[in-house]
């Protein structure tokens, strides 16, 4: 049984959803980003998404774009993310990486799967790689025991939901609304429907992302999904805390609130 399978089984036993927390590697710098990711684990995140800063993040809103820019300006290298993966694993959460495809393609899909597995990484989320284009990656991931995690969207047809679920391991990432990453005042009724449509074609856990920023929203999503994904709100909390001298405290406080939210279902 994989680490991702174990985490969702534990959550089922505890009758709650998993908290999946995202931060960008290298933001605001390598050392702080590793401490921050370990803090996510210590504050109640079950799975930590290690985001790979990229020059052309076309699925991200301004908060994550700016974090990526700052990381790249600070000299972030793709290989640095392995340190983040190790930090998350040591802190007791399950690390997965989220990356646009070109950095992985350049690293070499097989080498990436190998190095990710060696660092303790459980999977890779690919926002701009669909299963149709992923034959080589799926083979590499399979060979190294890394979960290829694909996205589904409200616009996905039932046939594509089934095809995507078939290609996915670990959990399915359901993009709650049509749009890019960033906090929203409402998560959207479409999310519940998408989760139901996905469950009709797959037994994999379904986690919902895009727009969740508060305990209330986390609780709402936790009532119908297996996991709640939070990104931009955490990136903002880390950015504000490190800029105004409060350090990791705002990030830890928000993570703890969200962790309560996923237990409120």
């Amino acid at each position: 049984m994989s680490a991702l399978d174990r985490v969702f089984r534990t959550c089922r036993d505890e009758q709650r959803a998993a908290l999946v927390a995202y931060l960008a590697a290298g933001f605001p710098d390598n050392a702080t980003s590793r401490e921050a990711m370990a803090a996510l684990a210590a504050s109640g995140a079950d799975i930590v998404e290690v985001g790979v800063p990229y020059t052309d993040p076309l699925m991200d809103g301004p908060v994550i774009q700016d974090a990526a820019d700052r990381a790249l300006a600070g000299g972030f290298r793709v290989r640095d993310l392995l340190g983040n993966v190790e930090a998350v694993a040591s802190a007791g959460a399950v690390p997965v990486v989220m990356s646009y495809w070109n950095p992985i393609l350049r690293y070499g899909p097989d080498a990436f799967a190998r190095d990710l597995a060696a660092a303790g990484g459980a999977g890779l989320i690919t926002p701009d790689l669909i299963p149709d284009e992923a034959a080589a990656w799926r083979a590499a991931a399979e060979a190294r025991g890394v979960a290829p995690i694909f996205l589904v969207a409200p616009s996905s047809t039932d046939a594509r939901l089934a095809m995507t679920a078939e290609a996915t391991r670990g959990f399915i990432y359901a993009a709650s609304t049509m749009g890019v990453t960033g906090a929203r005042t409402s998560v959207g009724a479409g999310a519940r429907e998408l989760v139901e449509r996905t469950r009709a074609v797959s037994d994999l856990p379904v986690c919902v992302g895009l727009g969740v920023s508060t305990r209330e929203q986390a609780a709402e999503v936790a009532s119908f999904a297996d996991g709640v994904i939070v990104g931009s709100a955490l990136v903002r909390a880390l950015g504000e805390g490190t800029a105004d001298g409060r350090g990791l405290a705002p990030l830890q406080a928000l993570t703890a609130e969200l962790a309560e939210g996923v237990r409120q279902r």
């Binding site: 149709d132 284009e133 969207a153 616009s155 594509r160 993009a175």
Partner: peptide, 20 residues
């Protein structure tokens, strides 16, 4: 295939755009 020119082309975009 999916808009392939030899090794080039394809569709490297978010799933949300595939239907469109």
């Amino acid at each position: 295939g999916l808009g392939r020119f030899g090794d080039f082309g394809g569709r490297f975009v978010p799933e949300a755009l595939i239907a469109a």
